[in-house]
Write a protein that binds this DNA or RNA. Structure first.
Length: 353
DNA sequence: CATTCGTGGAT
DNA sequence: TATCCAAGAAT
């Protein structure tokens, strides 16, 4: 079987995405940050976040010493917020335990929170010229097609095989190879309708030979998504400020600021607001109820509806979560979940218009 | 080993 | 409109 690396690297030299922002540096901090942001996230989505984040936190020290709210505000909308929380923990460990230098061994790198085998390999190869193989979605798809692997890609045994193949194809200096296989996956060996006719690996590709490029990797049967229903409350204190609550660190939207929210059943908005009023200690007057909306997560669908209410009085009581009263503009500067950000933008434009 | 964790673009 | 799925890791 012809080796994979040589034609891949030739293709990369001519057709690779050499202008990506994180390819203009060998700074471990910048390379690491790119890898974290790119986890399960498209390149085009990452670009603006990467630029803003680096402008505000240009190095380990800056990130390590920042308030979490600022970090999450700059991550707001990118998703998978544990990445941002872990990134800050990692920055602090690098500063305090590694003298400000990203570790240069797999063991030390994967010991950092948010860094698994593939992310560690990518950073070590790019920053220090090591020969570590990555196995991201692109590499996985390409290897599955190249070797015509029909087994379930999620199975532990299949993953072991793929890691082994990844290592066997990866040259001793893996930087360009790692970038190349990701570019090939993004530009040519795409998930659907791969461009096999212009692929540099078409001669050695077993899926191409079998005609199975379109059906590999094997898709696994979709489990049906559960649905959750919640109310959001947009509470106006009479001076143009609204109430935000900080989400617990663990769980969905951990560490972000959100509108007060609680589970929804069959009750009307007015009844729901009474319930919330009792538990929160806020005396509220119902003003309006927004339209039903939904937000699709990977693993469930969220149905929500926003109740607009006016604050009448407050009973002195310790809130279950940290709370802030702030203007819509101030709220928009915080780390908000995407649907909450949309909700506030809509409310703000309605109020002005 | 199966779940949990976001979001937006493509199709 | 519905589905897929992306430079994965933690639990």
């Amino acid at each position: 079987m012809p080796p994979l690396a040589a034609p891949l690297l030739r293709w990369y030299a001519g057709r690779g995405r050499h202008d990506l922002p994180w390819r203009q540096t060998r700074d471990p901090y910048r390379l690491w940050l790119a890898e974290i942001m790119l986890q399960q996230t498209r390149v085009e989505s990452v670009k603006p976040y990467y630029a803003r984040f680096l402008a505000r936190f240009p190095n380990w020290q800056a990130l390590a010493s920042a308030p979490q709210d600022e970090v999450l505000a700059l991550w707001s909308g990118l998703g998978y917020y544990a990445r941002a929380r872990n990134a800050q923990v990692t920055a602090r460990i690098v500063v305090e335990q590694h003298q400000g230098r990203f570790p240069d061994t797999m063991a030390a790198a994967t010991a950092l929170p948010g860094i698994g085998r593939s992310t560690a390999a990518a950073v070590l190869a790019s920053a220090y010229g090591q020969g570590q193989a990555i196995l991201d979605a692109n590499a996985r798809r390409i290897l599955i097609r190249y070797h015509a692997i029909a087994a379930d890609p999620q199975q532990q045994r299949t993953l072991q095989t793929l890691w082994s193949l990844a290592e066997s194809h990866t040259p001793a200096a893996a930087h360009d190879y790692n970038q190349a296989i990701q570019d090939l996956g993004a530009l040519c060996c795409t998930p659907r309708r791969p461009l096999c006719g212009q692929c540099p690996l078409q001669n050695g590709c077993q899926a191409r030979r079998q005609g199975s490029s379109d059906t590999l990797p094997r898709r696994r049967e979709k489990a049906q998504k559960p649905e959750r229903q919640v109310w959001f409350a947009l509470i106006d204190d009479g001076t143009g400020r609204i109430l935000l609550e900080k989400q617990p660190q663990e769980g969905i939207w951990g560490g972000l600021w959100s509108l007060p929210q609680w589970p929804r059943g069959d009750e009307t908005a007015a009844v729901a607001l009474q319930t919330f009023s009792r538990t929160s200690g806020l005396s509220l007057r119902h003003r309006a109820t927004g339209p039903e909306q939904r937000h699709a997560f990977t693993h469930f669908t969220l149905h929500f509806q926003c109740i607009e209410a006016a604050l009448q009085s407050t009973e002195l009581r310790a809130p279950a979560q940290e709370q802030r009263w702030c203007t819509i503009a101030q709220a928009a500067e915080r780390g908000l979940p995407a649907p909450v950000r949309r909700l506030l933008a809509l409310f703000s434009s309605k109020r002005i218009g």
